[in-house]
Design a protein around this nucleic acid. Structure first.
Length: 416
RNA sequence: GUGGACGUAGCUCAGCUGGUAGAGCACCCGGUUGUGGUCCGGGAUGUCGCGGGUUCGAGCCCCGUCGUUCACCCCA
């Protein structure tokens, strides 16, 4: 070997066996509820025109102002690795006219996202999300359904130690009225420069500050929830009633702050108890202005993004992931060249029937091959030698009990 | 971007007040002729993250760098 080892770029999450099995399980668990609710796959590029995010997500957000992977391509275009999913989905919906079909348009996606942050437990520069978007329908029932779909995903993984925070950001008039009072309130506080600047960009951020002085000072701050218009309040109450009807418990958190500018109305966040500083395992909400901001119709939508990496971490910390290694149905050990040919044939026909079959290649000693069969977690093992080739019948060994039964090669499929 | 901790075989780690490396697990071979999981015997493996410095001599000290990790910030 010559040359230095090349390592993965800083802060990326990657999954190798056996943990990749758990990762796949978590991701599928999060996707399935969406499929069952009639959401359809949308597969999008991981890079987009930079302007999509500056315009869609909002220039004042940290995500856009300092966490984007932006570069110029060979044609001099400014390209950005997607930091979140919703903006891209909206772009594609508009571009392909998906909003001209029967509404709501219901889509799910899954894939990698990128944020140039300092890595930390549960925070990576490349991470995975599963998300859905329901576009073009204003009905509190769909808000509740979207939340229920996310909740069903977490439950399917087996998570129990998490809570659901919800709030409503109301309509634009509600927010404007609240903002005036909140800014007034903050002006009376004694803030350091950095915090004052943050407050200036988005005064709501101070609700999220972790420092005790700020926390206690903010206790008396005016809450957006108290400024909701009649319509917004009724809408939010309706969402809550639906959630209760679904048996989904939640906590109203009027201090919840979301990082993306486009949220309006119902917003929510799933927070896990055992995760440490990066405890949000998923979140989302309604966005009214996003479509038109991106040049589409005046349609609102609601969606969520769930963190696959964090959900996996949560599952591991709860101990609900049975770290089941890969398990195959049958392990074939061929002895000799003729047996290999036959093993290949048997394996491929069993695989066609949906069985997971492995073959011990490489002319290892039988004992060694048996060991690898054992390690692979195979349920059954078959040794294929001259005797078996002549008689067309094999000893099917059950690796659990150690018992072997004689079966003809043709009827192997029935015996598995 | 800011701050703390850490970086020794594939993995988890030990290595005393500086004298050029070890354990467990895993892996490979064997314990006679075609059957694993236990047991026994044997074996391979590291430029001690990288670069520089101090020293007669550094895995142990100093500086830098890269990476990991935890927290802030932010968020999935």
């Amino acid at each position: 070997m010559s040359g230095k080892k090349i390592q993965a770029p800083k802060g990326v999450s990657e999954y190798v066996p056996p943990r990749s099995v758990s990762f796949e399980f978590v991701r599928e668990s999060l996707i399935n509820p969406a499929r069952r609710a009639g959401y359809q796959l949308i597969e999008l590029p991981v890079f987009e025109d930079t302007e999509l995010f500056t315009r869609g997500v909002g220039e004042s957000t940290d995500v856009v102002s300092k966490e984007m992977y932006t570069f110029e391509d060979r044609g001099g275009r400014s390209i950005t690795l997607r930091p979140e999913g919703t903006a891209g989905v909206m772009r594609a919906v508009i571009e392909h006219g998906l909003d001209r079909a029967q509404l709501p348009t219901k889509l799910w996606y899954s894939g990698a996202f990128f944020r140039a942050e300092r890595p930390q437990a549960g925070r990576y520069r490349q991470f995975y999300q599963v998300g859905i978007e329901a576009i073009g329908l204003d009905d509190p029932a769909i808000d509740a359904e979207v939340i229920a779909i996310a909740d069903a995903g977490f439950k399917a993984i087996g998570l129990t130690k998490y809570r659901l925070d919800i709030t409503s950001l109301g309509d634009s008039q509600s927010r404007a009225a609240h903002r005036i009072d909140l800014v007034k309130f903050i002006a009376s506080m004694d803030l350091d420069e950095a915090t004052a600047l943050r407050a200036q960009i988005n005064p709501l951020r101070l609700f999220d500050d972790k420092r005790p002085q700020i926390r206690s000072a903010m206790e008396k701050a005016p809450l957006l929830l108290d400024y909701l218009s009649q319509a917004s309040r009724e809408n939010f109450e309706q969402v809550r009633r639906y959630l209760e009807a679904l048996g989904i418990s939640y906590v109203i958190n009027p201090r919840m702050v979301r990082g993306l500018d486009y949220y309006t109305g119902t917003t929510f966040e799933f927070v896990h108890e055992l995760l440490g500083a990066q405890s949000g395992i998923g979140g989302g909400g309604r966005y009214d202005g996003l479509m038109s901001e991106l040049g589409g119709q005046e349609l609102s939508g609601i969606g969520f993004g769930l963190g696959v990496d964090r959900a996996l971490l949560a599952a591991e910390s709860e101990g609900v992931i049975s770290a089941d290694a890969f398990v195959s149905d049958l392990f074939i050990i061929p002895l000799g060249g003729g047996a290999k040919e036959q093993a290949l044939r048997i394996a491929s026909s069993l695989r066609k029937a949906g069985k997971v079959v492995e073959i011990a290649f490489g002319d290892r000693a039988l004992k060694g091959a048996m060991k690898s069969a054992d390690k692979s977690g195979a349920r059954y093992v078959v040794v294929l030698g001259d005797e078996e080739l002549n008689s067309q019948s094999v000893e099917l060994k059950n690796m659990n009990s150690g018992v072997s039964t004689s079966v003809s090669i043709d009827s192997l499929i029935n015996a598995l």
